[in-house]
């Protein structure tokens, strides 16, 4: 068992997310996180899928993703140098008594405070999964009111890019394409 990070370029068509999500359910893939967003090309979205599994299982997921007509390219970022980031917003209980301590922790982690109220701070922290987890462990004693994480996103380093050449958006279809998945 290991963490596998897959990146998928998908056509930006209605229902693509449902197709991918349905695939996870239908073939019992256990997904840690999935994040989706637009790319530099309007007609494409990029998904980052993280799963804890053996490599045969990850391989099976890659093949099944490819079976979806809307999936243009899939890459196993695990097997190549890549940069991986995740962002979290953490609302930490902080009053005038202990606010300084929390702010110190944020400084050490290079996290940003983006909202302050009498009772709490909202902290924005970006980094690899481990960093986010260490940070949340350290602020937990102060009290985490609520938090949200984006799920991982990843890019291959340097020359490692997901192939999208050869893909030309179709004009009449592009007109009917929605912006949202």
């Amino acid at each position: 068992m290991a963490k596998h990070i897959l990146a998928a370029l998908v056509e930006n068509r209605p229902g693509v997310l449902a197709r991918v999500a349905n695939l996870f359910r239908r073939r019992s893939f256990n997904i840690d996180s999935l994040s989706v967003g637009r790319t530099q090309r309007d007609e494409m979205s990029r998904m980052t899928i993280v799963m804890e599994s053996d490599s045969a299982e990850a391989d099976r997921l890659v093949k099944n993703l490819y079976k979806l007509v809307d999936v243009v390219h899939v890459d196993h970022l695990h097997s190549q140098p890549s940069v991986v980031r995740e962002m979290a917003l953490v609302k930490v209980r902080a009053t005038s008594d202990n606010r300084r301590e929390v702010i110190q922790l944020c400084d050490i982690f290079r996290a940003r405070i983006i909202d302050v109220s009498a009772e709490s701070l909202v902290v924005e922290i970006t980094g690899e999964e481990e960093k986010l987890e260490n940070f949340t462990e350290l602020v937990r004693p102060f009290g985490i009111v609520e938090m949200v994480r984006t799920g991982m996103i990843a890019l291959g380093r340097g020359g490692h890019t997901l192939k999208d050449e050869g893909f030309k958006p179709n004009r009449s279809r592009a007109a009917a394409r929605s912006n949202v998945l």
């Binding site: 209605p14 229902g15 449902a18 197709r19 349905n22 239908r26 007509v69 179709n170 009449s172 279809r173 007109a175 009917a176």
Partner: peptide, 23 residues
């Protein structure tokens, strides 16, 4: 029906504009 048949079709379409119908 496109939702219902998602796992039992090779692919499916909901046509939302006449312009995309021929393709």
């Amino acid at each position: 029906v496109t939702g219902i048949t998602l796992p039992i079709t090779k692919h499916n379409y909901l046509v939302t504009s006449i312009d995309e119908l021929p393709e």
